[in-house]
Design a protein around this nucleic acid. Structure first.
Lengths: 251, 251
DNA sequence: AGACTACAATTGGCTGAGCCACTTTGGCAA
DNA sequence: TTGCCAAAGTGGCTCAGCCAATTGTAGTCT
């Protein structure tokens, strides 16, 4: 539709592709679940080569805006909005984030999310939280499974907050937390696990009772205690240094 | 080159480049300010073609992990860790984040940041905050400049929190806020601007006095009031839009 | 000697053509 | 109707090469 689409841009041609897709989104031509034009078509539309289009799409892919499936096409993901956790993971590796930094961020974000969840959680979201609490009590003897239910409970609270920005940020730090915690979860103490499961149950009850202030207070205390549990484990392992009793299968 | 390499990975070759760089970072061979090997060298190291290396580097660039400068090389950025704000901007466009969503997220993050800042702010960071407060009072008649000082104050508080994760998240939402607010800032009411400047001054004073609870309370109230200011502006413009001013002066 | 300019090497940005692997689809045969 | 298979479409990757910006260096002018 534009024979006069000269390339007066001075910057990257690849970012012109990003801008083009952004326009399509802002114009409403692309939304969640939509499929983008094929790379070869996009190249014609924007007036750049296909490798350049691929570069732009790769940028969008890294941002989590699009996802490419070989043989099928490039799509805008459906479902709840999500910020890629990879960026935070790299940042953590580069700038040496401490465990306390992570717990502190979680306290700020998730205490707020718990308060909102108490005001807004739908019955469906409450049911999800109840499931995860049940999962916690059912997996007291399997630390890895327990950890997954733990994380899922917190993600569920974030989703129940009804605020997509808060939810996606909690997803980010949860992913970072999981990435680190997964390797040390085996050291957790039985009694601490039971305490944690109880804490989750009480948070769930506060949210279900629409008691925002109590939900906030309980979430705050839970995260403070969780941090001290983990600190204790690190301390204990420093002194014990036990040989790993279990062999793992290949890879 | 040779299909009988040890490249039996099934996944992207481009992500092998990302993983390679990640290894270099984890191993300590790359840190902030460091320069990556040239693309042509990296291609040899990883065993892929140069376009594939470029694809991987572009992913890292989108994540904010590296930055390429034509003719010079590809570097890991120095300075405080920062999460690209572009991802959140796209997410906002795709999922129709509301103004309330943004203010709510700011309340959660920045109230927490203000509390931490009161405990940890260095004298240098306090001086920066004081500068921005002065800038606010000095720009009461220029809404665009006022907005910049406003944002910078809040970024300064986040930086003073001493928590790099919280700081980078505040940067993200601040960028989103600025992107939207910039277009409507002209509508701000004189009296509201003065109120806002006062609020910032009081927050600064609380942080300087190391009174975390007061800093949190003031930040909370400030952000609540700022939201209602903005809502009022939108309402006013809804009724007054066609009423063109008789004169174009008064700026 | 010191400042400046011209140049050449290095490096990222981009192109075009092409091959491969996977997915989807539609027509054909049982 | 059901099942299968081949063709078309699509993204992943490579190769070879040219362009443009940067940078360090050698040579020139003042």
């Amino acid at each position: 539709m534009n024979p006069r689409d000269d390339r007066h841009d001075i910057g990257d041609s690849a970012s012109a592709v990003v801008a083009h897709v952004r326009q399509l989104i802002d114009r409403g031509a692309l939304g969640p679940g939509a499929r983008l034009p094929a790379e070869r078509d996009l190249a014609l539309q924007v007036g750049v080569s296909r490798p350049t289009v691929r570069a732009g799409l790769r940028t969008l892919g890294a941002l989590g805006v699009v996802r490419s499936r070989r043989g099928s096409g490039t799509y805008i993901p459906e479902g709840p909005p999500t910020l890629g956790a990879e960026a935070l993971s790299f940042l953590a590796a580069l700038h040496k984030f401490t465990v306390d930094d992570v717990y502190e961020t979680r306290r700020i974000l998730e205490v707020g999310a718990a308060g909102l969840a108490a005001e807004r959680a739908t019955s469906e979201q409450l049911a999800t939280l109840a499931d995860e609490v049940a999962g916690l009590f059912a997996s007291l003897n399997d630390r890895q499974v327990f950890l997954v239910h733990d994380i899922n409970f917190h993600r569920g609270v974030a989703a129940a907050s009804g605020n997509p920005i808060v939810a996606s940020m909690v997803e980010m730090v949860s992913a970072l937390y999981y990435e680190r915690r997964r390797m040390t979860a085996e050291r957790a103490v039985d009694r601490d696990l039971r305490d944690a499961a109880d804490a989750h149950r009480h948070i769930y009850q506060a949210i279900r009772a629409k008691d925002g202030e109590r939900a906030r207070r309980l979430m705050h205390e839970h995260l403070l205690r969780a941090r001290s549990y983990q600190a204790k484990e690190v301390l204990a392992s420093t002194f014990k240094v036990p040989a790993s009793p279990r062999r793992r299968a290949a890879r």
